[in-house]
Simulated scan of single mutants.
Amino acid sequence: MAKKFIAELLGTAILVLFGCGAAVIAGADGTTGIGLTGISLAFGLAIVAAAYGLGPISGAHLNPAVSLGALLGGRIGGGTFAVYAAAQVIGAILGALVLYIIASGSAGWDGGLGQNGYGAGYLGEYGLASALVFEFVMTFLFVTVILGATQAGAPAAMAGLAIGLTLAAIHLVGIKVTGVSVNPARSIGPAVFVGGKALADLWVFLVAPLAGGALAGIVHKAGLTRAD
Rank of each mutant, 00 (worst) to 15 (best):
S130R: 09
V24C: 08
I6Y: 02
G119C: 00
K3T: 03
V177T: 15
Y122N: 07
L113W: 03
L17N: 02
A191N: 14
A222Q: 15
D201S: 12
A129F: 08
E8T: 02
I39H: 07
G196N: 15
Y126I: 05
F134E: 12
G223A: 13
E125T: 02
I14G: 06
M1A: 13
Y52S: 11
I93L: 11
P209N: 06
A82C: 00
A149H: 07
L99R: 07
A154P: 11
A103C: 09
V180Y: 15
K176M: 14
G160T: 14
D228T: 14
A96N: 10
I93D: 07
L94Y: 00
F43R: 06
L210Y: 04
A211K: 06
R75F: 01
G33W: 08
A70L: 13
T150E: 08
A70N: 11
K176I: 08
A107C: 06
G44C: 10
A156W: 08
A185F: 12
P209L: 04
K176R: 12
A13T: 01
Y84Q: 13
G217V: 03
T80M: 04
A120E: 15
T144F: 00
I146L: 05
G21C: 07
R75D: 12
V177Y: 12
A22Y: 06
G111I: 00
L165H: 12
N183S: 13
V180T: 14
A49M: 10
A208K: 09
V145S: 00
G69V: 08
A168K: 10
E125S: 10
V48A: 09
A120C: 02
I175G: 09
A50Y: 04
M158P: 01
D201A: 13
I34E: 02
A162D: 11
A222M: 15
G124N: 04
G53D: 07
A169L: 11
F43W: 14
L97C: 01
P64Q: 01
I102L: 04
Y126F: 15
A152I: 12
A169C: 05
A49V: 13
T144M: 03
A154S: 14
E135L: 05
E8D: 06
V24F: 08
A87K: 03
V145W: 01
W203N: 13
A85H: 00
L224F: 09
A103S: 06
I163C: 11
I39M: 06
K221G: 15
A87Q: 04
L215K: 11
A60D: 10
